[in-house]
Write a protein that binds this DNA or RNA. Structure first.
Length: 243
DNA sequence: TCATTAACTGAGG
DNA sequence: CCTCAGTTAATGA
């Protein structure tokens, strides 16, 4: 636990994507955080809730999703350590989707009051968080294009590459692969297809020696093919601070 | 519980 | 006629 201080991944990410001064970094590190643990598949914040705190992922993976009246769930995004998936609740008071744990999770809750105070004292940090939510919106646009316009194998390839590029920032990609702890049912919900068809698509990528998905881990077999299939242009992630 | 696969079906190009 | 994808169902890890 103390090997992984609470705000490490967050600070690392903000430093890489936006740039932080030492003072700003310290201001983030001393935020009062309440740490809670969750099992897999637990709803952290539900559609319609009015949260009074934001949720920082310290360890584990989460997802955001909406469910139709007929019970079909669309996964909207996948979230990794160092991200604050419900930062929007600071300004949009009623949550319009669910935040669910994907794996066992350690989550740090930061009160809206403390965040507002942080923003008042450190205007540049407020701008960085604003930028962060704009990137979040850019990711949603890309997600819409993915689900709406790409063939299923490309959809999966794109999700895989995006997740990898985000995990890279927090140092969670190693030479033999990276974590992607989704069941095939969940992969289907992310791509807008059934689990059976998700299985077909996964098998096709394996048979074509593009990627291997096994027990929540991704192994890239052919980087060229993967990138071509994914139709990936990472500019939308805005991972370098603009000049 | 999750993953795998076959067989069948229909839409649509 | 071919590709994609949903449904159903059986089976394996």
């Amino acid at each position: 636990m103390d090997a992984e201080p609470i705000s490490d991944a967050l600070v690392r990410r903000l430093r890489t994507t936006s740039g932080l001064t030492a003072d700003e970094e310290q201001a983030i590190r001393v935020l009062p955080v309440t740490v809670r643990s969750y099992g897999a598949n637990q709803t952290i914040v539900r559609d319609g809730d009015r949260p009074t705190e934001c949720c920082l992922i310290v360890a584990g993976f989460c997802l955001r999703a909406k469910t139709t009246s007929t019970g079909h769930r669309q996964i909207l995004s996948i979230h990794i350590p160092g991200e604050i998936p419900d930062l929007q609740s600071l300004h949009l008071h009623e949550l319009d989707h669910d935040l669910v744990s994907l794996t066992d999770c350690t989550l740090g809750f930061i009160s809206h009051i403390a965040l507002r105070e942080l923003h008042r004292r450190w205007p540049n940090v407020a701008e960085i968080f604003w930028r962060d939510t704009l990137v979040d919106a850019a990711m949603f646009r890309e997600w819409i294009v993915n689900v709406g316009q790409r063939p299923a194998p490309s959809r999966l390839a794109h999700i895989i590459v995006e997740l990898r590029e985000r995990l890279r920032i927090i140092g969670r990609v190693d030479p033999d692969g990276f974590e992607m702890p989704l069941t095939q049912e969940q992969i289907g919900e992310a791509m807008g297809i059934t689990a059976v068809h998700a299985n077909r698509v996964i098998r096709q990528l394996r048979e074509d020696n593009v990627v291997e998905l096994h027990r929540g881990r991704v192994t890239v077999l052919n980087e060229m093919k993967l990138m071509e299939l994914a139709d990936f242009d990472g500019r939308y992630l805005h991972q370098s601070p603009s000049l």
